[in-house]
Design a protein around this nucleic acid. Structure first.
Lengths: 202, 202
DNA sequence: TCGTTGCGAAACTCAGACGTATCGAAATTA
DNA sequence: TAATTTCGATACGTCTGAGTTTCGCAACGA
C-alpha cells in the first residue's frame, strides 16, 4: 500500500476542518430556506446554527456575500435527463424538476433569493444567475428551438415568450398556489395548456 | 354663553401637518420602489428623505410595519375599465394595466413586496393582499369565467390555471425580461399566445 | 518534542438604527 | 396674550451585528 502524495503539498499545521465547512454551508442554506433574506441573515446566527466560531467562518469567507454565493453554488442544478422523444415530454421533465425543487426548502431558497434580492445585491445575483439560472434557461431554450425546427411548435413562436409562459406559470404556482406541496400532475397540466392554448380547438 | 362643542372638537395647539404626512408616505413608497426591502427600510432614512423629524413619524405610527401598511394602502388599485366586447380585449386591458404599473417604481414596489416579504411579515401581507391583489385577481377570474360561458374559451379550462398562465407570464417579464420598460405590445402578445397555444393551429 | 496552523469561545471596537427626550420656533385656540 | 400642541433638529442610551483579536486547546508535519 503506497500513500499517494497530494498534488499540492499540505502546509504545516492543523488542516482546516471539512466538517466545519459543510456545517457552515448547511446552516446558511437552512436559514435562507426558512425564508430569511440576505440582509437578515447574520454571520453570528450562522455560526451558532453550525456550531462553529465566527473565526472559522471569517477564515474562509471575507464577508457575508461571498459565503452566500458559495452556499448557493453548492445547490447544483442537476438538470433532468431529457428523453428527447418529444418536445412535450422534455418540457414536462423540465417543469417537473422545477416542481420537485419548489417543495424542498433547500432549493426553494434559490427562488426566494432570485425573486427578492435581485435589486439589492446585483453582483451577487450576477454570479448566482450564471450558475443556477442560466443552465436551466438554456436547457429549456434548446428544447423549444428543437420543437420549432421539428414542426412540433409554431414556427412563429418567440422563444423567449415560450420560456416566459412555461417558467412564469410554474413560478406563479410556487408563490401563490395553494400552500404546501404542488400537485404532482402540475407539470403535465401546465405543459398541455401552454401547448394547446386556452381557446377551443376544433 | 356656552358653546356646544361639536362632535369633532379641534384640540388646542398646532394642528398636525398634512404636508408632512404626505411626505412621509411618499418617501416610504419611494424607498420601497427603489428595491429596498422592509427590513432594510429605516425610519431614519424615511425621515431624511421626507425632510421631517423622526418625532413626526413616531407621533403618527408606532412602528415601521404600521407605516408600511398605511403607505401601501394608499396605492389603490385603479382597475381598468373593461369593454366587455370580447375576452381577448378584456384580458389585454388587464395585462396592459399590469405592464404599465410595472414601469412605475411607485407601483413596482407592490410587486417587490408581494414577492419577497410574504414569509417574513405575514400579517402585513394579509392586509396588503386583501387590498391590492384580490381585486385584480377577481377581475381576471370574472373575465375568464365569462369567456368559458360564452364559448370563447375552452370549456375544460381550469380557471386558476388560466390566471396562472396570464399573470405568471407577465410576472416573468417584469422580473427577468430585458431591463427597463416592457414592450408596449407585450400584453397583446402574451394574450394571443396564451389563447392560441404554442403548437401550430391548422 | 517543537513549531505551525485551525479550532471554538469570548471579549472587543465600530457602525447603524431604534425609540425617547429635549430644544427653540411656529401655529393654533381660548 | 397665554396655553397648548406640533414642528424639525439634535442628542441620548440601547441594541444588534459586523469584523477583529485573544485565549487555551487540538491536530498536524518535521
Amino acid at each position: 500500500m503506497t500513500i499517494q502524495e497530494p498534488a499540492v503539498a499540505r502546509p504545516a499545521g492543523r488542516p482546516r476542518s471539512e466538517k466545519a465547512e459543510k456545517a457552515i454551508i448547511e446552516a446558511t442554506l437552512d436559514l435562507l430556506g426558512e425564508g430569511m433574506g440576505v440582509s437578515e441573515l447574520s454571520i453570528e446566527a450562522i455560526a451558532t446554527r453550525a456550531g462553529v466560531g465566527k473565526t472559522t467562518i471569517y477564515r474562509r469567507w471575507s464577508n457575508k456575500e461571498d459565503l452566500v454565493v458559495d452556499a448557493l453554488a453548492t445547490l447544483k442544478a442537476p438538470l433532468p435527463e431529457l428523453g428527447g422523444t418529444s418536445v412535450r415530454d422534455d418540457l414536462i421533465s423540465l417543469l417537473d424538476a422545477m416542481r420537485r425543487e419548489a417543495g424542498q426548502p433547500r432549493s426553494r431558497c434559490v427562488m426566494n433569493i432570485a425573486m427578492s434580492e435581485a435589486d439589492r445585491y446585483p453582483q451577487l445575483m450576477e454570479r448566482f444567475v450564471k450558475r443556477a439560472i442560466t443552465p436551466r434557461r438554456e436547457a429549456m431554450r434548446a428544447v423549444i428551438e428543437r420543437g420549432i425546427a421539428s414542426g412540433e411548435l409554431n414556427p412563429d413562436l418567440d422563444v423567449d415568450m415560450g420560456m416566459a409562459l412555461l417558467s412564469g406559470t410554474m413560478l406563479w404556482h410556487t408563490k401563490w398556489g395553494p400552500g404546501g406541496e404542488l400537485a404532482p400532475d402540475l407539470a403535465v397540466r401546465v405543459v398541455d395548456v401552454v401547448l394547446a392554448g386556452i381557446t377551443p380547438r376544433p
